[in-house]
C-alpha cells in the first residue's frame, strides 16, 4: 500500500510532533515579523512607541500587574480584570438563563412559539451597539448599562440556537416521555431541557466572542475601570506597550474560558457530540 503523505493533500496524516510544529508555526512567524519590524523602527528612533520591544512591554506590564497604583492603591491589571469579568459573567449568565428558557419553550410549545418567535427574530437583528446610547441614557453610565448591553447582544442568539436545538429533539422522544407518564411540563423541563444543556454551553462558547466585543465597547465609552477602559485610556498616550499586553491578556482569558467550558462539557456530558443524537 502507498504510504500516506505527511503534509500535502487530502490523505495527509501529519505525525504527532509535526502537528505541534505546524500549530506553533503561525505564532512564531507573527512574533518574528513583529520583532523585526520593531527592531527596524528602533534603529531609526530608539524612543519609538508604536512597536515596543518585548522588554518594554514586560516593564510596563510589571508596573500594572505587581505595583499598586499610586492613586487608588490597587493593582490595576487585577482590578481591571475583575471588573470586566464581573460585567461579562453577569451579562452572559443572565443571557444564558433567559435564552435557555425562552428557546426551549419556543421549541416545544407551538402557542408560545407563535407568540414569540417573530419578535425574538426581529429583536436579534437590532445591532446592539446602535442602541448603546439609548442604554447609557436610560440606565446611566454605571454597571447596569454595560450588563444590559451584553445581555441584549448575546441573549437573542442563545435563545434562537436553543430554539433550533429543541425543535430537533425527535417527536418520538416527546411521545415516548408522555407514554411513560410525564406531564407536559415534565417533558419540557425533565426530558428535553437536560438534553439541551450541553448545547447551551456550546452556544455560550460561541457567544463569548461577541460578549467581549460588547463589554469592551461599553467600557471604552464610559467607565472608570475595566480592561477595555484601560486600553482606551492609554491610547491617548500611544502606549502600545500597555495596549498589546492587555489585548493578549484578554485573548488569553477568552481562550481559557472556551477551554474550560469544553473540558467541563466533555466531563459532564460524555454522551454529547455537536449535531449528534
Amino acid at each position: 500500500m502507498r504510504k500516506k503523505p505527511a503534509l500535502w493533500g487530502l490523505h495527509a496524516s501529519p505525525p504527532g510532533l509535526l502537528k505541534y510544529v505546524l500549530a506553533a508555526l503561525p505564532f512564531l512567524v507573527v512574533v518574528l515579523v513583529y520583532l523585526i519590524a520593531s527592531d527596524l523602527r528602533h534603529d531609526v528612533n530608539h524612543a519609538d512607541k508604536l512597536l515596543p520591544g518585548f522588554g518594554q512591554m514586560l516593564d510596563s506590564l510589571k508596573d500594572l500587574a505587581l505595583v499598586p497604583d499610586q492613586r487608588t492603591g490597587k493593582i490595576l491589571l487585577l482590578a481591571d480584570t475583575l471588573a470586566s469579568l464581573k460585567r461579562l459573567l453577569i451579562g452572559v449568565v443572565l443571557a444564558s438563563v433567559f435564552g435557555l428558557f425562552l428557546g426551549v419553550n419556543m421549541g416545544l410549545l407551538p402557542g408560545f412559539r407563535a407568540l414569540q418567535l417573530s419578535f425574538v427574530t426581529f429583536f436579534s437583528m437590532i445591532p446592539p451597539l446602535a442602541i448603546l446610547p439609548i442604554l447609557f441614557i436610560s440606565f446611566g453610565v454605571g454597571e447596569l448599562a454595560k450588563i444590559v448591553l451584553i445581555f441584549i447582544g448575546v441573549f437573542p442568539v442563545i435563545a434562537r440556537d436553543i430554539y433550533l436545538a429543541s425543535t430537533q429533539v425527535p417527536r418520538e422522544q416527546v411521545v415516548k416521555a408522555l407514554t411513560l407518564g410525564a406531564t407536559q411540563l415534565g417533558v419540557i423541563y425533565r426530558v428535553v431541557l437536560p438534553q439541551i444543556l450541553p448545547r447551551l454551553l456550546d452556544t455560550v462558547r460561541l457567544a463569548l466572542g461577541p460578549a467581549w466585543l460588547f463589554l469592551i465597547a461599553s467600557e471604552a465609552i464610559a467607565a472608570t475601570n475595566g480592561l477595555g477602559y484601560r486600553i482606551f485610556l492609554v491610547r491617548r498616550y500611544l502606549a502600545m506597550d500597555i495596549i498589546l499586553p492587555y489585548v493578549l491578556w484578554i485573548t488569553f482569558i477568552g481562550f481559557s474560558m472556551d477551554w474550560l467550558l469544553r473540558r467541563y462539557m466533555r466531563w459532564r456530558y460524555p454522551w454529547y457530540e455537536r449535531g449528534g443524537n
Binding site: 418520538e172 422522544q173 415516548k176 438534553q195
Partner: peptide, 10 residues
C-alpha cells in the same frame, strides 16, 4: 417502542 429514538441519549 420505536425503531429509533426510543431511548434518551443522556
Amino acid at each position: 417502542v420505536y425503531q429509533r429514538y426510543s431511548l434518551f441519549p443522556h
